[in-house]
Amino acid sequence: MDGFLHLDMLILILAAAVATFATRIGGYFLITRMKTIPPRLDAALNAVPAAVLTTLVAPNFYAGGPELKIAMAVALVVGLRFNVLTMLAAGWVVVMALRHGGGW
């Protein structure tokens, strides 16, 4: 994209920074005046990251071409044993092999 800095992007970035800092300092304020969290609310909060992140994965798999689907499937299997960097390498190798070697 052309340009150096756009006002709407600046606002978005700064809002993201404030939201992130709130999580970083939030526990410090909570720990002093902590009341008990209801178990169901705790379970719901506990599920938030996995639920949000899954929604960024599944539609990509659904909408992607066959080479992307295969690469993600391979990465998923790799992820059962290895870390994220290894998953990235595996997914990338598969997609590149299929696109440039397999002509997909």
Partner: peptide, 8 residues
């Protein structure tokens, strides 16, 4: 997508 899969 693979990175997010790893995070999940």
């Amino acid at each position: 997508p693979v990175y997010f899969l790893g995070l999940v």
